[in-house]
Amino acid sequence: MPIQYYIYLSLALFSIGIIGVLTRRNAIIVFMCVELMLNAVNLLLVAFSKMHHGVALATDPATTAGIDGQLFVFFIMVVAAAEVSVGLAIIVMMYRNVHSVDINFLNRLKN
């Protein structure tokens, strides 16, 4: 599959994520959109990694070029997992306190 397809897909995912973050008020959905953006990046990383690796294999069968892109993905997934746990905890606390997960409701820092 040409690399363009992957790029289109991740662009689409990322844009959906951005728009979701910007437009939705429900904290959980915003949170899911952030995850979507992260995964769009992950997808792109894997795709590019595969591409570079494939090119490099043609000249040197023992090469490891390009695989570090996939490594990054693991890092991101780990960080995202940690982030999810913290983020969800925050949202739960928020719900307990204000009985809502509407982010516009949380503007107390303003003053």
Binding site: I18, L22, T23, I103, N104, N107, L109, K110
Partner: peptide, 14 residues
Amino acid sequence: LQSGQVGNYLLIMV
């Protein structure tokens, strides 16, 4: 500018 609306901040950031 500091409206307190998370959405606004994000919009500006993007």
